[in-house]
Design a protein around this nucleic acid. Sequence first.
DNA 1: GTTTAAATTAAACGTTTGTTTAGTTTTGTG
DNA 2: CACAAAACTAAACAAACGTTTAATTTAAAC
Lengths: 210, 210
Amino acid sequence: MEEYSEKQLSILKVAERLFADQGFHGTSVRDIAQEADVNIAMISYYFGSKDKLLETIFTYRLEASRKFINELLENDTLEPLDKINSLIDRFINKMLGEQYFQCIMSREQLNSQQSPVRDLIWQLKGEMLGLMQPIVTNAQEAGIFDKDVDVEMLMTTLFGTIHQVIPAQHILKKNAPADVTTDEEFSVYIKNRVSIHLKKLFKAILTHEF
Amino acid sequence: MEEYSEKQLSILKVAERLFADQGFHGTSVRDIAQEADVNIAMISYYFGSKDKLLETIFTYRLEASRKFINELLENDTLEPLDKINSLIDRFINKMLGEQYFQCIMSREQLNSQQSPVRDLIWQLKGEMLGLMQPIVTNAQEAGIFDKDVDVEMLMTTLFGTIHQVIPAQHILKKNAPADVTTDEEFSVYIKNRVSIHLKKLFKAILTHEF
DNA sequence: GTTTAAATTAAACGTTTGTTTAGTTTTGTG
DNA sequence: CACAAAACTAAACAAACGTTTAATTTAAAC
């Protein structure tokens, strides 16, 4: 784990935003350099290449995701459903808190030809499945959760819903209550709405209660 | 609605696949021309430009989607839940049957700067919400569905789950039963698995039954 | 068979791409 | 101050990009 200078962090931040908004190939290093207010050559100088820059963003973000997963594992005192609910809220907060990166992930996971970045994505997804699976299995054996649950599909729904909410925010903003005006208010509003929705979904499927 | 020659259709087909696999900016017109076995100049000759080519793919596919929606509206004799189930199955079949195009949609809906293509996507999504909303509302008034349902989020989950399944198929293929070997068998298997999952989800949320 | 339009081609167009070079400035150290 | 290493810059690089041109072949109509 390296440390990055302010300038490097500025490049990473700008690159993440532009890659999210316009795609990797839709963003030129000149765009990045201009918005980050650095010389073009600095990007190669710091990160080696444009590809390596993307990889740097990924290792940087995914390292944080690993920490995030390990923190989730420590909450071992909660009831199974509370554990699931806590997990849902944390996922929503994490993913909506790094929307630019999640956009890049959405894009990169679609690439057919395998790449270092693509491999990292699916490896992490596997780890997240491995996080939820035992919680569900244990609760099933304790007779708390329904036996007949497709956990892999449930995770797909969790990620899919959040990944779908991110680009849909323009639309959701229009239909939001009138008292939601600022960006911060909307952020709270949308997180809460997704949270309620997903918790209801999971509870219904896992416990057959409402 | 125009008719396209075999050569034009060949270009459209190849372009759709490559745009899905590598992204729009990640695919060059030379790539498309080579794989479609036509001269590079033919793409501009037929479609005007690379951008127009993408737009052509969209108008072509979205026209079919409109027909698809109208067909759904005709099934007016079914019970509300059967109507929802039919809708789920048709969506799964449609979207998994045109996976390349759905990949392109997944990518393009992430673009921040508005474009003809982006507008078309969200317009269609609005229409699909408008398709499901009355079904749910009517059943709610008849006391068949739960009053407290976030239909917009439910649609988000529907699309999100299917859009997430598409790139996850490599992984899901590994964990598939041993008797699923051919591509056709896997296609049936995965459609069925998603169908069961989503129907269960919708039934639980809408009717509080299992 | 001749003529006219459409289809097709190879080559070239001017940009833009990511990257590198060679030179300059800044920084830190003895 | 002197000096070496790091940081930074403007310019140039070759390659790839989407598009157009001008010439040629094919097809259709009379």
